[in-house]
Design a protein around this nucleic acid. Sequence first.
DNA 1: CCAAATACGATTGCATGCAGTCAGCGGCGA
DNA 2: TCGCCGCTGACTGCATGCAATCGTATTTGG
Lengths: 241, 241
Amino acid sequence: MQSQQSRVLVQLRDLILKGEFGPGERLAEIPIAERLEASRTPVRLAFATLEQEGLVQSSPSGGYVMRAFTRKEIDDAIAVRGVLEGMAARLVAENGLTRAMSEELAECIRLGDEALAAPVLTIDGYADYVEMNNRFHELLVKFADNAALSRAIELNNRLPFAAASATLPMHSSTGDGRQWLLITHNQHRSILHAMDRREGTRAQALAIEHVEIARMNLRHAYEKAQESAGLMPAIRLLSGR
Amino acid sequence: MQSQQSRVLVQLRDLILKGEFGPGERLAEIPIAERLEASRTPVRLAFATLEQEGLVQSSPSGGYVMRAFTRKEIDDAIAVRGVLEGMAARLVAENGLTRAMSEELAECIRLGDEALAAPVLTIDGYADYVEMNNRFHELLVKFADNAALSRAIELNNRLPFAAASATLPMHSSTGDGRQWLLITHNQHRSILHAMDRREGTRAQALAIEHVEIARMNLRHAYEKAQESAGLMPAIRLLSGR
DNA sequence: CCAAATACGATTGCATGCAGTCAGCGGCGA
DNA sequence: TCGCCGCTGACTGCATGCAATCGTATTTGG
């Protein structure tokens, strides 16, 4: 069994990312403590961590409030992810993939192929793709073997919609979602190809370009705000600008 | 007056970065609370933050222990800083510097020129250079106008010896320290020049190259460990590997 | 009727009590 | 003498009490 503070942290972060609290909303300790069945102490601990992650903000008058995110902020965070994952891809390419690493990534590609095999995207196919996508990005960072880089990417991914799979739900609704998944999937394939051939600059450039689809998804989410709200409830944390 | 928790956090971080605690050392709440004249509660809060920053580690048996850093870890963190500051320089170049921005950076260059004017580096000259160096790097990030990027750099800089001025003390002891400061200073000048001319790729490449001197300093610090210990006491947090 | 001041309720920041747990040490048995 | 086991002391994790503060609503004076 784990500690209260880690349980509260995970659950509270989950609530936040599910859009449970509105932007700017005051996050009172007592109701949250009651809701998560803990005392105020672990909740306070969790707040301290969440403030580091940038999800909540300490109010000058005491206590914490839910942060509001601007569109630019998220867009910028995705750009940062691009640069960091680009660095990861370059490092992996330069250091060289072992056979096992290459195989593990190739397995991701295969799973993606399967998920996208059907001419029309199914729910299961979409879910499989999301899982594969997460794995691919995780492995990329892991294989780069740079703790500071991992940390930076992890922190960045805590922001809503900054992580690799955070904007994928946009593709599950639109009719042409499968087309975009095919494109991003092919980018994965190209990144692996570049890394296999130790083409560091190419791998880096591809990884940076890869996040442009996420930025596009974010734009789409804004344009069709009411639809997106169902798929990605945390969209309400984003202010228009 | 500020809160206990922020005061404790700052002071405790300071103690850690001054090398007050040895790597792996258990950080007991009570002695630290007494030393900082606070109760255990704010100390615990500070620990939670310091764990996020990667300076301390929660022990599986409860409590926190001082982290040990490997040489590779710090070297990697400096490389990450290079990539992030490279991104900042590129963004500034691409977005264009306003007159005021350019002036502010040019002022840094001027201050550096003055600090290094004397044929032999004085203590004051060195101190002035450090301050200027901090300012230059801060402005670079600020002008990039990307909150996620700022956050990532800030987090990274929390690691010992990862920040821009953290390895500069190496130049204060050696006889040829002034030469190296002249070289880094000229890199600053080149970065500003590139940004002024909107040469994004050049600015980025220069910023990335700029951190190589920091990595060199880190190597030197290892080679002359006993000398370095006086200048940079936190060196004891680094394990050999 | 409006504005300002005051009082009250809620909430935070911090201190501390309490129980559970872990580590270290001494004793006992082989 | 060495190893294992039990005990004790200390420390953590969590809950809660208390004082200070902030926001709000009501009341009072102009």
